[in-house]
Design a protein around this nucleic acid. Structure first.
Lengths: 135, 135
DNA sequence: CGACTATATTCCTTTTGAGGTATATGAATC
DNA sequence: GATTCATATACCTCAAAAGGAATATAGTCG
C-alpha cells in the first residue's frame, strides 16, 4: 500500500474519527451517525473514499452496511493506525466519539454491529403525505 | 499542533521525502535539490508549506536557507515522524534519497549544512578564486 | 555599485476533494 | 407490488493545492 495514499486518507478529520472508532470494532453507517454526529451523506462519502483505497472493508448485513478495518492490514497501515490511536488519546474530539460509542455499547452487544436496535429508530408515525418523492 | 494539519503535510510524496531526509540533519535547498533530484521551485514551495505549518524551521546562513526539523516537536509530530522513518525503511524512493545523502556526506561534514561545497557547484569558469564561502 | 548566487514569490492551469441537496438503489416487510 | 428503511450516488459549487514558467528578493563578492 502506498504511503502517500494512506496519508491522503488521514488528512481529513471525519475520516480520522471514522478510523479511530473502527479500531474498537465494526460499525454500520447509522451507528457512525450516532457516534460522530455527522450527516449520513458525509459519512457515506468518506466511507466510500476509505473503501476505494482499501483502508476499510464492507459487508452487507440485510439493510445495513457494516464497515471494519481490514483483517490483515499491511505494515504501513498498521503502524499509522496505531500512531493515530496514540495521538487521539488526548484530543477532545476523539474522546467525545469514544464516549458516545460507549453509550451505544449495550445496543451493539445486543444486536451486533449490523443493525440499529429499535431504540435508536425514529417513532414511525402513521403517515400519508410523503415529501421528496423521487422522479 | 492539530493532527489533521500534520497529515495534510504528510500527504505529498515530496514533502514526505523532505521530512524523511531531514531526520538525518539540517539541509539547505541546494542540498535538497541534489538529494531529492527535484527542481528548486518545487522544493522551495513545499518547504514553505511545511514551514507555514510548523513542521520545519529555517535559519538563514549567508545566502543559504537551512531547514531543519523543529528542535522540540509536539508529541503528535514526534510520533508521526518516527512512524514515517519506520515505514520508509523499506521503500525504494526513500532509500535512494538516503543513498544520495550519504554521497553528499563528506561535503556536508566539511562545509556544514549551510552551503554547497565547491564539488557540487558548477565549474564557474575563469572567475577569480574560491567562490561561495559562507561567512 | 554591479554582477552573481541561492532561494522565494507570483501567475497560471489543472486536478482533487469537501460538503450540501436531491435522488437512486437494494433489501425487507406488508 | 408498493412502502419503508439504510445507504449510496449524481450533480453542483467552492476552496485548496500541485507543478511549471517567469520574475523578484536578499545576501555576497569583487
Amino acid at each position: 500500500m502506498e504511503l502517500v495514499k494512506i496519508y491522503e486518507c488521514l488528512c481529513d478529520l471525519t475520516r480520522l474519527r471514522v478510523l479511530h472508532v473502527l479500531a474498537r470494532g465494526p460499525l454500520c453507517v447509522c451507528h457512525f451517525q450516532a457516534v460522530l454526529a455527522e450527516p449520513q451523506v458525509k459519512l457515506s462519502k468518506h466511507l466510500a473514499y476509505l473503501r476505494a483505497r482499501g483502508l476499510v472493508s464492507v459487508t452487507r448485513r440485510g439493510n445495513w452496511m457494516v464497515y471494519a478495518l481490514p483483517s490483515a492490514p499491511p505494515p504501513e497501515l498498521r503502524a499509522n493506525l496505531a500512531c493515530l490511536q496514540d495521538c487521539a488519546r488526548e484530543q477532545p474530539v476523539f474522546r467525545r466519539d469514544l464516549a458516545r460509542l460507549e453509550r451505544l455499547a449495550p445496543t451493539l452487544a445486543e444486536t451486533g454491529p449490523g443493525c440499529c436496535g429499535p431504540a435508536t429508530r425514529p417513532p414511525r408515525r402513521a403517515r400519508t403525505a410523503a415529501p421528496g418523492r423521487a422522479r
